[in-house]
Design a protein around this nucleic acid. Structure first.
Lengths: 167, 167
DNA sequence: ATAAACTTTCATTTATTTTTGAAAGTTTAA
DNA sequence: TTAAACTTTCAAAAATAAATGAAAGTTTAT
């Protein structure tokens, strides 16, 4: 396989993986493209490479920056903007985890808490509901806290050092 | 909040969470409904409760059974089929993790391996590509193995015992 | 202050995914 | 073996999500 083919295959695969996990295909593809670029890429280049419109590119770059996994860069003497991706994979994982937790898990937890704390009659059905949703609340909370712990650990310099050494 | 309202809120929330993670809404809603049911539920009941068609119900129940998180049950003297969800959350997590690994992660890993092992010229661009995709391969492999280890641990009876005691 | 170079926004179009429902298939009881 | 009771399939329709592109907005150089 030659480079160009491999590059394309990687971008397509990353895009497909993204959509299976609820991230829009183009967003994942742009991210893939930036990840494997050794230098900042302009909007024009992204449009050209992925054959997508300016608007689409702009919106998805914005989304990637909101997730904190793509950065804007300015080149001296260049008017236009360039973009780079976070390339440290631990950092990337932490940022994605934190963002999904904030946007999706935390709000779901709030609802789980609400519905699991209703007053119920003593019908078996209602008791089971409270029991099961409470368990679910505890489970999700525990899993989410684990993520938090991991991200904290990754932010703390000693932790980072340990990780680096372990690699 | 009264029971019926809480139940509905839970089903809607679980459905929304599902779609954010690439699982179709109805599939997640049916699963939610079965999770909080203290007894097996018929197809008719699911259709009624979620206001969806017979075909939709049938297909999504099949998908849930393929994932191994919903089971068919037969009641003595009843012609129609009933359904129950896996209610043990550790078991549920393991099954979802295993299935997503098999369907999505493993195939992606295969591609990552392919593209990260191409022969490249010594251009910085191509070197960076191989370097970055190799790192990604290692990273994803490590994460996926971690899941495998967790599922193995969960299947082994001693591990289960330890988990039970820890709870 | 003006205009060129560039980016963002958002109403409309397009593509993708999900749902429907009727026909085909299956199982069971008599 | 027949028919009633039930489930599955799948082509077509509907709903949802994503992409386009032109107009509006912004920044920078002169």
């Amino acid at each position: 396989m030659e480079f160009k083919e491999a590059k394309n295959k990687f971008v397509q695969t990353w895009g497909a993986l993204g959509s299976q996990w609820g991230i829009n295909k183009t967003m994942a593809q742009i991210h893939a493209l930036l990840m494997i670029s050794n230098e900042p890429v302009s909007m024009e280049d992204i449009m050209e490479e992925l054959q997508i419109s300016r608007g689409n590119t702009s919106m998805n770059l914005k989304a990637l920056m909101d997730w904190g996994i793509v950065y804007k860069e300015y080149k001296a003497g260049e008017r236009r903007e360039f973009f780079t991706a976070e390339k440290d994979l631990d950092e990337l994982a932490v940022k994605i985890a934190r963002e999904r937790s904030k946007r999706e898990i935390k709000p779901a937890l709030k609802i789980l808490k609400e519905v699991s704390t209703i007053d119920v009659s003593n019908s078996a059905e209602e008791k089971h509901f409270v029991d099961q949703t409470s368990k679910l609340y505890d489970f999700v909370l525990k899993a989410d806290n684990m993520l938090d712990k991991m991200t904290e650990f990754n932010e703390n310099w000693l932790g980072r050092l340990v990780l680096k050494i372990m690699k």
